[in-house]
Design a protein around this nucleic acid. Sequence first.
DNA 1: TTCATTATTTAACAAATGTAAAAGGATACC
DNA 2: GGTATCCTTTTACATTTGTTAAATAATGAA
Lengths: 188, 188
Amino acid sequence: MDQLTQKLKSLSKLSEDSLNAIFEITQLVTFKKGDVVQEIGKTCKNLYFINQGCLRIFYLKDGTDITESFEFENSFVARGESLLTMKPSNKGIEAVENSEILQINTPKLFELFEKNLQIERAFHRIIEQSYIQQINRLESLQFHTAEERYKQLFEEKSEAILRIPLKFIASYLGITQVSLSRIRAQFK
Amino acid sequence: MDQLTQKLKSLSKLSEDSLNAIFEITQLVTFKKGDVVQEIGKTCKNLYFINQGCLRIFYLKDGTDITESFEFENSFVARGESLLTMKPSNKGIEAVENSEILQINTPKLFELFEKNLQIERAFHRIIEQSYIQQINRLESLQFHTAEERYKQLFEEKSEAILRIPLKFIASYLGITQVSLSRIRAQFK
DNA sequence: TTCATTATTTAACAAATGTAAAAGGATACC
DNA sequence: GGTATCCTTTTACATTTGTTAAATAATGAA
């Protein structure tokens, strides 16, 4: 739980008791490359923290697999809109690599909020940070060309291009694989 | 304050005392069409609630005015990324129509959080809702064509097309005015 | 290793969107 | 009311991106 502890402490002040309360509703799980962590159509009842590996959130648009987002070590992953509304998500989560994941039970987490303000605040920080991330992503998609978006990804998250299949990168950037290939060809 | 009261109560349980504490840090302001409510470059220290009128968040990309978002009556408006990070925003806020706005002082609001959990929770709801909105907007931009995005706006927020100049709508949809005009021409 | 499968690139053509400029419309101000 | 300004549409052409299909490269399993 070391990595998770450090991450949580970096967000908000947390006592040992608070941390232990969180650990009690947390489970270590492992997935193999390609495993489905959460199926499309289910309501999101877990918040994931990546110890090792890579997860992606995806969905199907007219039968085509679309990558909404991906995360690496020391990041949280959840289908926020489902977690917060308690409604089924049209998105799924998949392991892009063999992964070691901490799985936090969110119904129990929300119960903890009622008795422990420290915990509530820490997890609100996570939501806030996801929100800020989302605002920046929107700006990128709204007004940068596909080439600019690729460059930006290359600069800010270059490991993504090394660790994630390009077909996932393409849909993440909102373009086709062919288009991404053309952009990459210019770079040489 | 009626509209704001109703809105807040719809989000979370709030006592009269809590509501009054919020009102104490809230100010009624009016703007004329075209007025700048918040300048680009300033740190966001207010959360706005629209009693009457319309606000838009915008920024400049290579000298071109881009509309990031707009809101009408009974909605909150803020540059979330600046409000939460306390850093200057590269975006501004403008009144699209003559508007009557309630302006909530956020540094004081954050102080209230420390003493009043009800208030903290109510405003976290606002952030959560903005976050969900943002997720859906991203999905729309990432994988719908410009035509689909226009149709969607038409169906979900048709008043926007009536009340907001099309040049603002175009950049909001991530396309040029010319392109929007072409899409609209097909609809006749 | 070898073969089958999957991922990536390339090519050719079609469709969508951008750019620049001009023409109409609508609006605001004197 | 008239004029200037701003908004919207249209046109013509350039560029980007999508689609389909094929070729090449990389990967994984027997």
